[in-house]
Lab assay of single mutants.
Amino acid sequence: TGEEYIAVGDSTAQQVGDLTFKKGEILLVIEKKPDGWWIAKDAKGNEGLVPRTYLEPYS
Rank of each mutant, 00 (worst) to 15 (best):
53 T>N: 13
50 V>H: 02
53 T>Y: 12
4 E>P: 14
21 F>E: 00
32 K>Q: 06
36 G>Y: 04
23 K>I: 08
52 R>S: 15
38 W>N: 00
37 W>Q: 08
42 D>P: 01
58 Y>K: 08
44 K>D: 11
30 I>C: 05
6 I>M: 08
28 L>D: 02
21 F>V: 06
24 G>N: 05
28 L>T: 10
37 W>N: 09
9 G>L: 15
30 I>R: 04
1 T>G: 12
2 G>T: 08
17 G>I: 05
57 P>T: 05
30 I>G: 02
42 D>M: 02
5 Y>C: 04
51 P>S: 13
34 P>G: 10
33 K>C: 14
40 A>F: 03
14 Q>C: 14
43 A>T: 10
9 G>E: 15
7 A>E: 01
59 S>K: 12
24 G>K: 02
17 G>P: 05
55 L>Y: 01
10 D>I: 03
54 Y>Q: 13
35 D>E: 06
1 T>C: 14
45 G>A: 03
9 G>T: 15
46 N>Q: 09
36 G>V: 03
22 K>W: 07
59 S>G: 11
52 R>T: 07
56 E>N: 06
18 D>L: 15
20 T>P: 09
26 I>N: 02
49 L>H: 08
56 E>P: 00
23 K>G: 03
31 E>H: 12
43 A>I: 09
50 V>Q: 00
44 K>W: 14
15 Q>L: 10
8 V>H: 04
50 V>C: 04
37 W>M: 13
47 E>I: 15
37 W>D: 05
16 V>C: 11
25 E>C: 07
7 A>T: 11
47 E>G: 04
9 G>V: 15
54 Y>D: 07
4 E>L: 15
14 Q>R: 13
39 I>D: 00
55 L>Q: 01
49 L>A: 09
57 P>Q: 07
13 A>Y: 09
23 K>A: 08
22 K>D: 03
28 L>R: 09
59 S>L: 12
49 L>I: 09
27 L>Q: 00
38 W>P: 00
28 L>G: 02
35 D>A: 04
52 R>Y: 14
30 I>S: 04
22 K>M: 08
11 S>K: 14
4 E>H: 14
11 S>M: 14
6 I>H: 03
41 K>V: 13
43 A>K: 11
2 G>P: 12
56 E>S: 09
46 N>V: 08
58 Y>Q: 05
55 L>F: 06
47 E>K: 11
52 R>I: 08
37 W>I: 11
50 V>G: 01
20 T>C: 10
5 Y>G: 01
51 P>H: 15
44 K>Y: 14
34 P>W: 08
13 A>P: 10
52 R>W: 13
52 R>Q: 13
40 A>P: 00
34 P>C: 11
28 L>V: 10
52 R>H: 14
5 Y>F: 08
29 V>W: 01
11 S>I: 14
27 L>G: 00
9 G>I: 15
26 I>D: 00
25 E>M: 09
32 K>Y: 05
36 G>L: 04
56 E>A: 12
11 S>N: 12
48 G>M: 03
21 F>G: 00
45 G>Q: 03
18 D>Y: 15
58 Y>I: 10
40 A>I: 07
17 G>Q: 06
29 V>D: 00
42 D>E: 01
16 V>E: 12
58 Y>H: 08
55 L>P: 01
10 D>E: 07
3 E>S: 08
10 D>V: 04
44 K>Q: 13
36 G>N: 05
10 D>M: 04
46 N>C: 07
47 E>D: 04
13 A>K: 08
28 L>P: 00
41 K>S: 05
31 E>V: 12
4 E>D: 06
23 K>E: 05
43 A>Y: 09
15 Q>D: 10
50 V>F: 01
32 K>W: 04
19 L>T: 01
4 E>A: 14
27 L>V: 06
58 Y>V: 10
56 E>L: 12
42 D>Q: 02
12 T>R: 11
17 G>M: 06
33 K>T: 08
5 Y>K: 01
15 Q>M: 11
45 G>F: 03
9 G>R: 15
1 T>W: 13
19 L>M: 05
42 D>F: 02
34 P>D: 12
50 V>S: 01
33 K>V: 06
32 K>N: 02
58 Y>W: 11
44 K>M: 12
57 P>S: 06
57 P>K: 11
36 G>C: 04
14 Q>W: 13
28 L>A: 04
45 G>N: 05
2 G>R: 09
59 S>I: 13
21 F>D: 00
59 S>T: 12
18 D>H: 15
4 E>G: 05
35 D>S: 08
24 G>L: 03
5 Y>R: 01
21 F>C: 02
29 V>R: 00
35 D>C: 09
3 E>T: 09
57 P>N: 05
2 G>Q: 09
10 D>P: 06
50 V>M: 03
54 Y>T: 07
32 K>D: 01
18 D>Q: 15
12 T>Y: 13
50 V>N: 01
31 E>D: 10
53 T>P: 06
9 G>N: 14
43 A>D: 08
33 K>Y: 09
27 L>E: 00
16 V>Q: 11
14 Q>T: 13
47 E>L: 14
34 P>L: 10
44 K>C: 14
35 D>K: 03
52 R>K: 13
46 N>R: 09
22 K>V: 08
55 L>G: 00
40 A>L: 05
59 S>F: 12
10 D>L: 03
54 Y>H: 13
32 K>G: 02
28 L>H: 07
57 P>R: 09
32 K>H: 04
39 I>G: 02
44 K>F: 14
9 G>C: 15
12 T>W: 12
9 G>Q: 15
1 T>L: 13
31 E>L: 14
42 D>L: 03
29 V>P: 00
10 D>C: 08
57 P>F: 07
23 K>V: 07
35 D>N: 12
17 G>C: 07
40 A>W: 02
40 A>V: 14
37 W>F: 12
19 L>F: 06
11 S>H: 15
48 G>V: 04
10 D>G: 06
48 G>R: 02
30 I>A: 02
6 I>K: 06
43 A>Q: 10
44 K>G: 08
1 T>Q: 12
25 E>R: 02
11 S>Q: 12
46 N>K: 07
26 I>L: 07
39 I>P: 00
43 A>F: 09
34 P>A: 13
49 L>N: 08
6 I>Y: 06
2 G>M: 11
56 E>H: 09
39 I>S: 04
38 W>K: 00
10 D>F: 05
1 T>N: 12
24 G>Y: 04
